[in-house]
């Protein structure tokens, strides 16, 4: 099932084009990595997809429904440095629990199943023992882990991740990519991840969207070099 469809997208900051001719899809079961040099407007592209910015030209379709015909739940991890509100008075557990709220729990109490998701998410990033710590007391890498745990606890249909592994060591990154790969292969989750570690991820991702600087443009404008598809794990596409 198609979760994201970007068609001939262009985005300009005032009159300056930064993105042009962007076309790709992310479907249920896809693990797509989005790469490009620093300043290649990768985050801008994600923000267009999420509806935080409006494309200047072209269109973005973000599915309303998941493959079970229920409301599509999107788990978004923004770039850590820009977004993490370290002064926020919250424990790790409170923050990760808040990942369950979009799962129909805005006005309901979290139940046993929700608590299990939260515990599993915290354990998967090795932060269960730190659950009673104040989030402002964590290191950069730990903050990144709990941002990931919050999204894992949400159990979204579509992951949109902006350099989620910044500050994590190699072993933790590998573990994280394996979890994502499992989620896409065995649970049909869609994943779109901005990364600089494409060498590490290429073994896991089945789609590579690469933004490259447009030749001949007087602006620092990026377009798609290619959208390469690799064969998927046979267990996907249920």
């Amino acid at each position: 099932m198609q979760y994201i469809k970007v068609e001939d997208l262009a985005f300009h900051y005032e009159d300056e084009p930064v993105l042009e001719n962007i076309c790709f899809e992310v479907n249920s079961g896809d693990f797509a990595m989005l790469t490009g040099e620093n300043g290649a407007a990768k985050t801008t592209l994600l923000r267009n997809i999420l509806g935080l910015l409006k494309p200047t030209k072209g269109s973005v379709m973000l599915s309303k429904k998941n493959r079970e015909n229920k409301k599509l739940v999107v788990g978004y991890i923004p770039q850590q440095v820009a977004s993490f509100n370290a002064g926020f008075p919250s424990t790790v557990l409170e923050l990760v629990r808040s990942g369950r709220y979009p799962r129909g729990k805005w006005f309901k109490k979290l139940d046993e199943d929700d608590e299990k998701h939260v515990e599993k998410a915290l354990e998967s990033v090795g932060m269960w023992e730190m659950r009673h710590k104040k989030i402002g007391e964590l290191s950069g890498g730990q903050k990144q882990r709990i941002s990931i745990a919050r999204v894992f606890a949400m159990d979204p249909d579509l992951f949109i991740l902006d350099e989620p592994t910044t500050g994590m060591d190699v072993a933790s990154r590998e573990e994280f990519y394996k979890l994502l790969k499992h989620a896409s292969d065995y649970h049909g989750k869609g994943i779109l991840m901005v990364t600089h570690d494409h060498e590490e991820i290429r073994h896991y991702a089945n789609k590579h969207i690469e933004l490259v600087r447009k030749e001949g443009s007087p602006w620092r404008c990026f377009s798609m070099d290619s959208c390469k598809e690799r064969s998927k794990h046979p267990s996907s596409f249920h």
Binding site: L52, Y76, P78, S98
Partner: peptide, 18 residues
């Protein structure tokens, strides 16, 4: 309370959460 918690933590993730 839960919606305000999410909104005050980060408006962009609150928006994507619907």
């Amino acid at each position: 309370r839960k919606a305000m918690y999410t909104l005050t933590f980060d408006e962009e993730t609150a928006y994507t959460a619907g």
